[in-house]
Design a protein around this nucleic acid. Structure first.
Lengths: 138, 138
DNA sequence: TGATCCCTTTAGGTATACCTAAATCAGGTC
DNA sequence: GACCTGATTTAGGTATACCTAAAGGGATCA
């Protein structure tokens, strides 16, 4: 498999923290498809980088900057899945693609995508337009 | 900078081959922002992988499989820039984003994007719809 | 033909995300 | 309070894309 980025670790930690109050080494590792020692190593790096607070044998929680990064990523992710959804991509697939794309698209571009998603949701004719597209290319 | 993938090397080689008949080590390196020895190393790997035909001191050209991969990537790239264009992303930025996204989006999803691009281009009301979006979120 | 110059390759080293195996810790049980 | 057990960390090693420095090839020109 591909090497994981800092951002992917941060997302996983955010998910686990939300679900269980903190992110433990083993849970991070199994969620990301790596072995526990790899997770430990990254946790130490992320602590150094100031993105998490990490206690040995205890787990990690996001710091302020870590939380901000996680929120940005979540927002990007949601925008991208919403767009792919509009374009008729099956939801599970949209989610998988978003996991990748979110790390490689610029902030400005995501804003435009968000504008479009909002436009489609708010505009009467837009819904009709999207339905027509979907029915034509089913 | 980030590490380059095989796909990025293939794209650069395709570009240079089209422009100059073959892709030379130095040109590849400067196009990709790496040093010549790094390019040499990758060329040897790509030759092993059967994606290029490479002669020492002479340069590389794509093989059949290499050409097919390059064409797929070009097609993905074009689809993504077209879509971002429709969504109002500035063209240079769209191109940069496409360079990244194309390596991380699934084939099936790109097909849906292509459908949408085609729909917008072929449907009367669609063009109108897109114009309205663009003028509202200028 | 031999010298020169530019480009490419080889040699050897770095950084980083991953691994396995072994050591360490913490919490529950006797 | 000593012991077990399962999770975590440490130690040490691999793969890979990158680098710098040095060696080698090929074309041109005297």
């Amino acid at each position: 498999m591909r090497r994981k980025t800092i951002e992917e670790y941060i997302e996983t930690i955010a998910l686990l923290e939300e679900r269980e109050g903190r992110a433990q080494t083993g849970a991070i590792a199994s969620n990301m498809g790596v072995k526990p020692p790899s997770a430990t190593e990254m946790l130490q790096k992320l602590e150094q980088a100031g993105l998490i607070h990490y206690e040995s044998y205890d787990g990690a929680v996001l710091t302020g900057p870590g939380r901000r990064l996680a929120d940005e990523l979540t927002e990007k992710h949601r925008t991208i899945t919403d767009l792919l959804d509009i374009l008729g991509v099956e939801h599970g697939q949209a989610d998988l693609d978003a996991c990748q794309i979110e790390h490689h698209v610029s902030a400005g571009t995501v804003e435009r995508l968000a504008d479009f998603v909002e436009f489609v949701g708010s505009d009467e004719a837009a819904g009709e337009f999207v339905r027509r597209f979907r029915s034509r290319y089913r």
